[in-house]
Write a protein that binds this DNA or RNA. Structure first.
Length: 271
DNA sequence: AAAGCGCCCTGAAGGC
DNA sequence: TGCCTTCAGGGCGCTT
C-alpha cells in the first residue's frame, strides 16, 4: 500500500524520465478508477511537455503548460517507467508514452487510484485545495497540532490521519509514529499536551524520513520492462504485530480499531 | 463542526 | 488440494 514515502520514492524514480519530455500518446485501457479517467486526457496531453513532477500529500502532479495530470495510487497502484514495447499486463490501466520511447505506466488491481486531468494549477483542484500541511515541512508543528486538537474527542490516531490536519500519514506510519512517541492511539486528541504533540511531530517526521531513506535504494534500475519499484521492507515495531512482543518492553502488542482502521500499540509503552 | 460509516475493488489469508 | 468467505485499506462523501 503506497504511503507517502513510497509515493515520494516513486516521484524520484519517474521524474528524471519525465521531466522536459514531450508526451507522444496516451492510452486509457480502463477508465474505471476511483473517478472515471477523462477521455480529454488522451486528446489533450499528447504534444504537451512535462515541465515538473511534484508531490502534494500522496498525489503526484505532472505539470505541463497550463494543465496537470494528477495521479493517486490508492491502495494498490504502481507506476513504472518501461520501454514502449513492454508487454501489457493485467491491470495496466493507463500509459503515458513519451517521445523518448519510454512509457509511464499505471498498474492498479483494485482501481482505488486516480488519474485526473486538470486545466490549471493542480494545487487549486478541489481534492488538493483543502489539504493540511506536508508532514515533512516546517509548517507541520507541535504547536499547530496542539491548537487544532483542542476539544476534539476523536482518537489521536484518527486525528493525525485526517488530511485537513496533516497529509500523508497513513495507517502504518500513524501506528509506528505513535509508538515512537509513546502515545496511546486511542487517547482523545484534545487530551494530549503540547510537549507530547511536539514529540509526536518529531516521531512522524522520523518514521517518514527513515522510510524515504530506505526507498532510495530502490531507485536504481527504475526502468524495467516488467518491474515495479518493489516497495521496501520496513522494520515495524507494532503495525500488524498483534500478540508479538513490543521491541522496547516485550509486552504483547495489542490490536484495536480506531476510525475503522486496524490500530496496533504497546499497552505498556503507550499512554 | 466533528465524528462515524458506507463504499469503491481485488488479492491474500484463513477456515473447512 | 481446493473452494468459499472474510478482511484489509485510502479517502471521499453522506449521515448523524
Amino acid at each position: 500500500m503506497p504511503e507517502l514515502p513510497e509515493v515520494e520514492t516513486t516521484r524520484r524514480g519517474i521524474a528524471p524520465h519525465l521531466q522536459g519530455q514531450r508526451v507522444s500518446t496516451v492510452v486509457i485501457r480502463d477508465p474505471r478508477l476511483r473517478w472515471p479517467v477523462s477521455p480529454a486526457l488522451a486528446r489533450e496531453l499528447p504534444g504537451q511537455r512535462i515541465e515538473a513532477v511534484e508531490r502534494r500529500a500522496k498525489y503526484l502532479l505532472l505539470r505541463t503548460q497550463g494543465h496537470a495530470l494528477i495521479l493517486h495510487l490508492g491502495m494498490s497502484g504502481r507506476l513504472c517507467i518501461a520501454p514502449a514495447s513492454a508487454t501489457v499486463r493485467p491491470h495496466d490501466h493507463l500509459d503515458v508514452a513519451l517521445e523518448s520511447g519510454l512509457v509511464l505506466r499505471l498498474n492498479d488491481p483494485r482501481r482505488f487510484g486516480a488519474a485526473l486531468w486538470w486545466a490549471g494549477d493542480p494545487l487549486s483542484h478541489p481534492l488538493l485545495r483543502q489539504l493540511g500541511p506536508e508532514p515533512l515541512s516546517d509548517a507541520f508543528t507541535g504547536t499547530g497540532l496542539h491548537q487544532q486538537s483542542r476539544r476534539r474527542r476523536a482518537p489521536v490516531k484518527a486525528f493525525i490521519m485526517d488530511s485537513r490536519v496533516v497529509v500523508g500519514v497513513g495507517n502504518i506510519y500513524a501506528n509506528e509514529a505513535l509508538f515512537l512517541a509513546g502515545i496511546h492511539p486511542l487517547r482523545a486528541a484534545g487530551r494530549i499536551g503540547l510537549g507530547r504533540y511536539e514529540r509526536l511531530v518529531a516521531a512522524i517526521k522520523t518514521v517518514l524520513n527513515d522510510a524515504i531513506g530506505r526507498g532510495g535504494t530502490t531507485l536504481r534500475d527504475y526502468v524495467s520492462a516488467d518491474g515495479s519499484p518493489g516497495y521496501f521492507q520496513l522494520d515495524l515495531s507494532v503495525y500488524a504485530r498483534t500478540g508479538q512482543p513490543c521491541p522496547r518492553c516485550a509486552a504483547p502488542v495489542r490490536r484495536a480499531v480506531a476510525g475503522q482502521r486496524g490500530t496496533f500499540y504497546c499497552p505498556r509503552c503507550q499512554h
